[in-house]
């Protein structure tokens, strides 16, 4: 078991957002989490990544069979958890190259590896840039500064490809993307999909799931997973909307 969540409750400023989530993710699986706006999808992603804005009030999260909730953000990342942000943060003055090189070398250090040489690093960057079809000059720019919505999302996938995580959580990476960008994002995910990693894809629409075929689909509604199923559930949701779930 890679990730196991039991009865997870989390709140922000005293307001409970997650009201008892149960979820299990195995190596090699792609899970989609769907649901209307404001039901706690992004909160779930943030809690797994370790955002301290949210307070976990009840329940447990195990990652690689260890309690995850006490682990600091950066250590979770070094253990292979990657969060693709719904709203990637602009960091003026920090170039993508510098940022990724720092991140990658910290990961390597944690794993007992030597820092990557500049030549190796640049080679890796070129390779991954091709995968997500981003312009080569983008990596010299400051992280996300002045990027278009599509560039920001592609940059998240690019970072994911560079860092090669074990559990990748993509928080509404598809929102606001045109069809070309969506295709590139999906291509990136499908390329990285392996037996020894897993994906948690949070999305509002079924559209992305036409390109990334999930193994499981969960519907999150008012802080709880109200329905789980296979990929056909996504199609059902697309046809019927979310309203029919309110009565289940």
């Amino acid at each position: 078991m890679l990730l196991s969540i039991k009865n997870l409750h989390a709140s922000i400023n005293g307001k409970e957002i997650l009201k008892g989530i149960d979820l299990e993710v195995n190596y090699g699986e792609v899970h989609a989490i769907m649901g209307p706006n404001g039901t706690g999808k992004s909160t779930l992603a943030a809690v797994i990544a370790g955002r301290d804005l949210f307070e976990v009030t009840e329940g447990e999260v195990k990652y690689k069979d260890k309690d995850l909730l006490k682990v600091p953000v950066e250590e979770r990342a070094r253990e292979g958890i990657f969060l693709g942000f719904q709203y990637p943060v602009e960091i003026p003055g920090v170039s993508i190259t510098n940022f990724l090189r720092t991140a990658l070398n910290e990961l390597r250090k944690y794993r007992g590896l030597d820092p990557m040489s500049a030549v190796e690093f640049l080679k890796l960057m070129e390779e991954k840039k091709k995968l997500v079809e981003i312009q080569s000059n983008l990596t010299n720019r400051s992280v996300n500064e002045g990027f278009s919505g599509g560039e920001k999302k592609k940059n998240e996938i690019f970072q994911m490809a560079m860092l090669d995580p074990v559990l990748a959580i993509l928080d509404e990476t598809d929102s606001g993307l045109d069809i070309d960008a969506l295709r590139i994002v999906a291509k990136g995910v499908n390329h990285l999909r392996r037996k020894d990693n897993a994906f948690l894809i949070i999305t509002h629409y079924q559209r992305l799931l036409e390109y990334i075929i999930p193994d499981y689909v969960h519907v999150l509604f008012e802080g709880k997973i109200v329905k789980s199923g296979g990929k056909e559930l996504a199609i059902e949701l697309e046809e019927k909307g979310y309203d029919w779930l309110k009565n289940t």
Binding site: A49, P72, E74, F85, N98, F99, T102, E106, V143, L163
Partner: peptide
């Protein structure tokens, strides 16, 4: 927000602070 973003990529809190201050 930026601190969280950097740390989420595996960068230590101290280095994240340094990166942001330096930037």
């Amino acid at each position: 927000e930026a601190m969280f973003y950097l740390r989420q990529r595996g960068i230590s809190e101290e280095n994240a602070r340094m990166l942001l201050m330096y930037a």
